[in-house]
């Protein structure tokens, strides 16, 4: 897998940020300009998180730092959290998904045969995976609730 240095990473984040901004403006009622602060904050969180994953010891993936940073900065009571939350309201979660899935679509073209080969199997497998997580959680919840006398 090709790896990118921090400058390249920043440029990619900015490119995808601009695309999300355009998609966000078309697909939701949020204005172009009012979504800019939120996207800048997201780019900063992503960049810092990726750098932490890269340079901090412990082998913790960057994605864990990125999500954790996002959590901390918006935790009620943390200085600036209200401002960040207000900025975030203007950036739709779904608008951020669209460019990613567009890149994914283009990239999948390369592995079309592999996908076609495992296609129906993956669909059946997905159903079994959904059943697994649902029943697994239901069994535990049932046992604990019963034990606590809440049902």
């Amino acid at each position: 897998m090709k790896t990118y240095n921090m400058l390249e990473t920043l440029i990619i984040l900015v490119i995808v940020g601009i695309m999300s901004l355009i998609g966000n403006t078309i697909g939701s009622k949020n204005g172009f300009v009012e979504a800019i602060p939120g996207l800048l904050i997201l780019i900063a969180i992503a960049l810092v998180g990726i750098a932490m994953g890269k340079y901090l010891p412990g082998g913790i993936p960057g994605v864990a730092y990125v999500v954790t940073l996002g959590c901390i900065l918006t935790y009620p009571g943390v200085p600036g959290a209200d401002f960040i939350n207000a900025c975030m309201k203007k950036v739709g979660f779904l608008a951020l998904c669209t460019p990613i899935l567009a890149y994914a679509g283009v990239s999948i073209g390369k592995d079309l045969d592999a996908f076609a080969h495992s296609g129906w199997r993956i669909v059946v497998l997905s159903c079994v995976i959904f059943v697994g997580t649902y029943l697994g959680s239901a069994v535990i919840a049932q046992v604990i609730l019963k034990y606590l006398g809440q049902i």
């Binding site: 995808v16 999500v67 959590c71 918006t74 939350n85 951020l96």
Partner: peptide, 20 residues
């Protein structure tokens, strides 16, 4: 090869959804 980085922007948003 770009996909991994593009996902980080979404994950930052994801964290800000969970925080509050």
């Amino acid at each position: 090869s770009l996909l991994g980085i593009t996902l980080m922007l979404l994950m930052a948003r994801y964290g800000t959804l969970v925080g509050p």
